[in-house]
Amino acid sequence: MSKTRKTAGIIIGIVVLVAVAVSLWFVYQANKDVPSEGSKTVTVEVLSERDNYSFKESYKTDLEYLGDLLEEKGLIEFTTSEFGRYINAVQGYKALDEDQSWWNILVNGESAMTGVDEIALNDGGVYTLQLKIGYDM
């Protein structure tokens, strides 16, 4: 392969890669969870079959993300990393390695794809923290 063709191939490769990356960024932005502004009423549920515990409370708030609300209301114990808050316990009920338990988050009944810091609060939204057992789906 001549040097010119090789250089052209590399340039085309870079352009294609950048174009795909930019397109993906737009796909992400178009599907991003956006919080509604101002005051809203949201419901937080806590469910743990293991502990035979359930809790439900509605809150009026100006906050935009679930993580901030859960912290403000003192509902969670967490550790913070580069990925945001990771829930270790809800209302004292701990996720444990021994029984492979973990806190799953549901938004209006659907499993959330992101952590609590990226879950936007919307008026009328129901946010459920459910203790799951087992790391497999």
Binding site: A21, L24, W25, V27, Y28, N31, M113, T114, E118
Partner: peptide, 9 residues
């Protein structure tokens, strides 16, 4: 997949 796009970038 979509929620992980920033990490893929």
């Amino acid at each position: 997949w979509i929620s992980g796009i920033p990490f893929d970038l």
